[in-house]
Design a binder for these strands. Structure first.
Length: 256
DNA sequence: GCGACAG
DNA sequence: ATCTTGTCGC
């Protein structure tokens, strides 16, 4: 078992990590948020990237999580890990981690490789308490994690240019940001993420620091692993994998 | 009080 | 997230 797998198992076993209700969950987030660290990430130096995603079944009774490791250079899948589970926490915007991390940690536990960085389908610092799933996961297993979300949760956003590679900062709090002149935002307000166009004339994705990466490196990595489609390849693979897996699971078990 | 609200 | 056919575009 790898060190990361062991830490994932330990995080799952600690009851302190899994509050019963939203109220306690918020307290837990505030406590752990202090542990988030930002450090430089050399996107070009990454060799193994792991995409994570969760899919849901009908009636809120089952979900599937996938961890897919890709060779960052060729973008070929080198390992996959799948797991099915039962939701034990309701869906509450801002408290994602308490619902999705249990199965995700189990999927990570099943990996035999050690990815250089993980990509989570959600936010990191671009969160009301600066502690979205990406940061939460990173802190629990002490790994590098990048957050890549498909829609906005928190902060001010400005649409980037239409071409692939264009981006604008996501800003929290009061800012003097006006239209596309975000230079002012860099000085006064807090930059919590990046609205990034991974594909020309297609909706952008929202990148933020999860844990032990910096925003520059995170955005560079997302661009590197999204050469063709809007959604980063690691996430696309994880999405497809757990989606199909869950479908087959229902088809075989739910004999009506 | 009135919106907004990751997957 | 999920329920769902065709359709416009490269």
């Amino acid at each position: 078992m790898t060190e990361i797998a062991e830490r994932a198992a330990a995080a799952l076993d600690d009851p302190e990590n899994w509050p019963e209700d939203p109220k306690e969950a918020v307290v837990r987030q505030r406590l752990l948020a202090d542990r988030v660290r930002t450090e430089p990430l050399d996107a070009e130096g990454v060799e193994l990237v792991c995409g994570l995603d969760v899919s849901y079944g009908v009636g809120d009774t089952e979900l599937a999580a996938a961890a897919v490791v890709l060779d960052a250079r060729t973008l070929e899948v080198v390992e996959t890990s799948l797991v099915t589970d039962t939701p034990s926490f309701p869906y509450v915007s801002g408290l994602f981690a308490f619902r999705e991390l249990p199965p995700v940690l189990k999927a990570i536990e099943g990996l035999s490789l050690t990815p250089d960085v993980f990509i989570s389908d959600g936010f990191g610092l671009a969160h009301p308490r600066r502690f979205g799933v990406a940061s939460h996961l990173g802190v629990l297993i002490d790994a590098r994690v990048v957050g890549s979300a498909k829609s906005v949760l928190y902060g001010r956003n400005t649409p980037p240019g239409e071409e692939r590679g264009s981006w604008t900062p996501m800003v929290a709090g009061r800012s003097e940001i006006v239209d596309d002149t975000f230079a002012l935002a860099e000085e006064g307000a807090e930059v919590i993420g990046r609205t990034l166009r991974t594909r020309s004339r297609t909706r952008p994705v929202y990148v933020s620091v999860g844990h032990r990466v910096d925003l520059e490196g995170a955005a560079d990595l997302i661009m590197r692993v999204s050469p063709k489609y809007r959604i980063p390849e690691p996430i696309r693979h994880a999405d497809r994998l757990c989606g199909l897996y869950r479908k087959e699971h229902e088809a075989g078990g739910a004999a009506k």
